[in-house]
């Protein structure tokens, strides 16, 4: 059983936005809709770190839980998708999502690409796989072509990994061992604490 996941290695991410345009290009996502974004912390100072963020395809997806019309579904390989014909564009999923993944196209309720748009893990939607209808609403269906998301496949430094969680964990683990330091990507100390500021040290029990 595959379980699709993304992982972004902040030791590698150089904020080049390759993942962002790979996504735009592969899925022909309109201007103003960003299924994927690169986030940089501590920009311009020591400790600058970037990671690429999109829908995390949560196992217990808050968007799915709160959707008033139940338009979300989990595929068997763990991808969170939604039916745009049902979606009402209310934005409740936007409240629920911890990562800002849902996107709301700019031209009104019946805007481009439906009412709510988000990363599909390049798995299209509930239309016929690889049909023009599916592409028009959801973009590419690379999983049905035996490929992985364009963003991860094209990442400039192979920082962004995408695929079966078990497999990418192996890839990442190997790197961590080569590096000879922590296997975690984002512990509290890394993500929020600045080594120069002891008052922002990790809360008890957190990693790193």
């Amino acid at each position: 059983m595959a379980r699709m996941k993304f992982l972004c290695d902040d030791e590698r991410c150089i904020a080049c936005n390759g993942c962002v345009t790979a996504c735009k290009q592969e899925n022909e996502v309109p201007w103003g809709v960003n299924r994927r974004r690169v986030v940089t912390l501590n920009e311009g100072v020591r400790g600058e770190r970037s990671i690429s963020v999109a829908c995390m395809h949560c196992s217990d997806a808050p968007c799915m839980a709160v959707c008033p019309v139940d338009c979300f579904y989990h595929t068997e390989e763990g991808v969170v998708l939604h039916d745009k014909d049902m979606c009402i564009g209310c934005g409740y999923c936007f409240y629920a999502c911890p990562f800002g993944a849902p996107q709301f196209p700019q031209a009104g309720a019946f805007g481009m690409r439906g009412k709510m748009d988000k990363c599909t893990f390049c798995a299209g939607g509930p239309e016929k796989d690889n049909s023009k209808e599916e592409f028009a609403k959801y973009g590419s269906n690379r999983l049905a072509q035996g490929k992985l998301p364009a963003c991860a496949e094209m990442c400039s430094t192979k920082a962004l990994l995408g695929g079966d969680g078990d497999v990418i964990a192996d890839i990442f683990r190997n790197r961590a061992i080569k590096r000879g330091k922590g296997s975690e990507v984002w512990g509290w100390g890394t993500a929020y604490g600045k080594p120069d500021h002891p008052q922002q040290q990790a809360p008890t029990g957190a990693k790193s």
Partner: peptide, 28 residues
Amino acid sequence: YQQGKYQGKPDTKPWDNDPGASVYTSSK
């Protein structure tokens, strides 16, 4: 991974496609 209360159209599983169905398919 249940469908929950999903009300929309059913989706084909990726492996239920014939690999030849899409001209872009690379794997077998």
